[in-house]
Design a protein around this nucleic acid. Structure first.
Length: 503
RNA sequence: GGUGACGUGGCCGAGUGGUUAGGCAAAGGUCUGCAAAACCUUGUACGGCGGUUCGAUUCCGCCCGUCACCUCCA
């Protein structure tokens, strides 16, 4: 067990107050949490997952201190406009655009496209060992609730209809801007003026709740005719539906602070008159090899592209190494994702798995007390948890893990039964809190079997050569194996091999 | 222009008013036929200029640089 902690020991930066603050739960012992998911018009990239991983770590840390977590994260499967939230005949729906792209050709319609990318998102989620949310609602399954919310906003005077749509009346919500600091109405007005196309809007700051459009690929019938909902309303509605009018924590990427979360607050608090979310947590964008990740720079990394096997056109990256890399920087700092770090982290997760296997094997054979100094790891479990409770200090938590790896490795040949128990407990803590070891990997069926057979053949040849002290031949075989991507290790217990980490 | 960040040793990346983060890479060592693996040892860094202080990388000011949001984006 982890040491006993109170929920107030869990401190996180709150965008609303610009301070690190303890969790202040509405209901003791229970965390109500909502995280914004992506629009599923493409494969999720590593930046998406950096943000999802922040939520994942919050959930794991909360569970480690005994909180019951109600974790809702949505899938946005309605396409919203690329240009503005203004009804603009020029504006293009992102899903519609994806459908017309090269990748989109394989889909019969926009619904299939959304379904496909949503399925891959969930598969990536699983492969990167993220905790399943309590619920994963979809925007398209909550159109009715969104319409009802818009109606309520209209009757309360917070929204109005024009010929093109329904808009939220920002002037009716004085707190608008409290999250992002974008309070200066004149400033916003000036900047957005040129983008405004619906001249019937009362205020350029007003944002769309419903858009009238009977030509749209995805459309629903509403009191205002055929059309589709605005982007921001779905999250307010789904959070409300599944977590209640007040929630403890709302998370997402830093880009969502404005306008998305600002608008969510305006809608939700106008509807209920209560504070929507107490704690707002935002994850910084990451960079790739020191540059902004973008398709034009060719450094746009999708989870799919990295972890798919080489045979399937991917890079064959260990999912847990990717996970470890994505959490190895603090979530509130820009993080520079490099292939170098990814490679180093591959070694780290391998070592963790080696330890897991080692512990399993030792317990099966002999775990007698051959030790003098017992293995001590409890301090490291505590250090790791404390680091996470301190605004998710993952670098510090990981440093504690690596210290543990070192301690176990240093004692690998003299582990007593108590040591094995100690190490297993510790490893369990590491996995439950950080999730970087993962499930045992099922060997690649066909590929691994044939490779293994080939390797074994060569290794037995090499064993013969070594027995006759034919070092030249032995080294030649080792080179051949190297060319096959296999590393050979002669240990005291015999010869072992493994796949090399790609460079 | 407005808002908010960031700048740490070759690289990635924590943290702190005065005492070692950690990792990768590198060097040396133990082990080994040689390697690999494993373990041990080695690095004294905090953008610039001022200020506060007995003392600042850590606080304050200015400057330089990088980034994000303000328009779709995790």
């Amino acid at each position: 067990m982890f040491p006993q902690k109170a929920s107030s020991d869990f401190r996180l930066f709150n965008t609303l107050t610009n301070r690190v603050e303890p969790l202040d739960l509405i209901e003791p012992g229970k965390l109500r949490m909502y995280a914004c998911g992506p629009t599923v018009y493409s494969y999720a990239h590593i930046g998406n997952f950096r943000s999802f991983l922040t939520s994942d770590l919050i959930v794991r840390t909360a569970q480690a201190i005994g909180l019951k977590v109600n974790y809702v994260t949505n899938i946005t499967d309605v396409g919203h406009l690329t240009d503005d939230d203004v009804a603009d005949s020029q504006g293009e729906d992102r899903m519609a655009r994806a459908l017309r792209s090269k990748e989109g050709e394989s889909f019969g319609n926009v619904w299939d496209l959304a379904r496909h990318y949503a399925n891959v998102l969930i598969a990536d989620w699983d492969r990167l060992n993220l905790e399943e949310p309590t619920l994963r609602p979809r925007a398209t399954e909550h159109i009715r609730q969104q319409i009802l919310a818009v109606q309520s906003l209209i009757s309360a005077g917070h929204a109005y209809e024009t010929t093109q749509g329904v808009y939220f009346r920002v002037a009716s919500f004085p707190d608008y801007g409290k999250l992002s600091g974008n309070r200066d109405a004149a400033e916003l007005t000036e900047l957005s003026r040129e983008l405004v196309v619906d001249s019937a809007k009362e205020d350029p700051r007003d944002f769309a709740l419903w858009k009238k459009d009977d030509k749209h690929l995805m459309q629903w019938f509403s009191p205002w005719g055929w059309g589709f909902p605005g982007w921001h309303i779905e999250c307010s509605v789904m959070a409300n539906e599944y977590l209640g009018e007040e929630i403890d924590l709302h998370a997402g990427g830093e880009d969502l602070i404005f306008p998305h979360h600002e608008c969510e607050i305006a809608q939700a608090e106008s509807l209920t008159g209560k504070q929507f979310a107490r704690h707002w947590v935002h994850t910084r964008f990451l960079q790739v090899e020191g540059e902004k990740m973008s398709k034009s720079k060719g450094n746009f990394l999708t989870v799919q592209g990295l972890i798919e096997s080489k045979e399937d056109g991917g890079k064959g990256v260990d999912p847990m190494a990717l996970r470890l890399t994505l959490i190895s920087g603090h979530y509130r700092k820009p993080y520079n994702f490099t292939m170098d770090t990814l490679r180093a982290n591959t070694r780290h997760v391998q070592r963790l798995r080696e330890i897991r296997d080692l512990l399993d094997n030792v317990s099966e054979t002999e775990a007698t007390d051959k030790t003098v100094e017992p293995l001590v790891l409890d301090d490291l479990s505590a250090r790791m948890l404390d680091a996470m409770l301190d605004d998710l200090n993952t670098p510090e938590a990981i440093a504690a893990v690596l210290e543990g790896v070192k301690r176990v490795m240093a004692k690998r040949d003299t582990l007593g039964s108590d040591d094995v128990e100690t190490a297993k407990d510790w490893l369990g803590h590491v996995e439950s809190l950080l999730g970087i070891i993962g499930r045992p990997i099922a060997p690649d069926p066909a590929d691994d079997a044939s490779l293994a057979a080939a390797v074994e053949t060569l290794l037995s040849e090499r064993a013969v050569a070594r027995a006759s002290r034919d070092w030249a031949r032995a080294d030649q075989i080792r080179d051949e194996l190297g060319a096959m991507g296999v590393e050979v290790m002669d240990t005291a217990e015999g010869v072992t091999w493994r796949r090399k980490i790609d460079s």
